[in-house]
Design a binder for these strands. Sequence first.
DNA 1: ATTCAATGCAATATATATTTTACATTGATT
DNA 2: AATCAATGTAAAATATATATTGCATTGAAT
Lengths: 73, 73
Amino acid sequence: MCNQVKKSRIESGMTQLQLAEKTGVTRQTISLIEKGKYNPTLNLCLAICYAVNKSLDELFWIDRRKNDEKDQR
Amino acid sequence: MCNQVKKSRIESGMTQLQLAEKTGVTRQTISLIEKGKYNPTLNLCLAICYAVNKSLDELFWIDRRKNDEKDQR
DNA sequence: ATTCAATGCAATATATATTTTACATTGATT
DNA sequence: AATCAATGTAAAATATATATTGCATTGAAT
C-alpha cells in the first residue's frame, strides 16, 4: 500500500533473506520496510533499487501526502 | 556532488532555513544533507521533494555505486 | 565600518532506524 | 504428520539520523 518493494522483490525472484543479504541489512529490516512500518534511510533505498533494478521513484515515490495526515518525519 | 538539493532549493528561491521550516526539520539537517554528509530518511527526502517540487530521482538518485566504494548503509 | 541574513560547523542530547535473538505460523514437500 | 523454507513479529541492544545550542564567517545593504 505504501511502497513497491515487495512487488519488485518477488518479480526479481528473490526472497526477503536474499534481498537483505544483497543490500547488507537484516531480514527484519526488509520485512518491516515492505510492511510500510519503517522509514528507511536513503542509502538503503538506493541499495534496494540497485538490487531489484528499479528507480527511487518506481519503488518509493508517494504522491504528496494530504496535509492532515500525521507524519513521523 | 552527491544530490541536487542545494541546486533545487536555490532555484525555488528558498533559504536553508525556509526549506527546513517547510520540511519540519532543522537548518543544520538541511545544511548537512546539502553537503552530502547525511544519509537522510525516506520521509525527509519526500518532504524535500514536495517542498521544491521535484521527484526522488531528480533530487537523490545516484548511479549504482562502484563496488569498491565504501558505503555506510 | 556596522549591521544583519545566510551559511558552516562543533558538542552534546534525543529519537529512531537497524541489529540481534528468538519464537510462531503457513504452505509446500516428503 | 513431520520437516523445512519463507515470513511475521516482539523485546532489548546498538548505531546513527536529527535536534539543540551556540559561535564564526561571509557578503550585501545601510
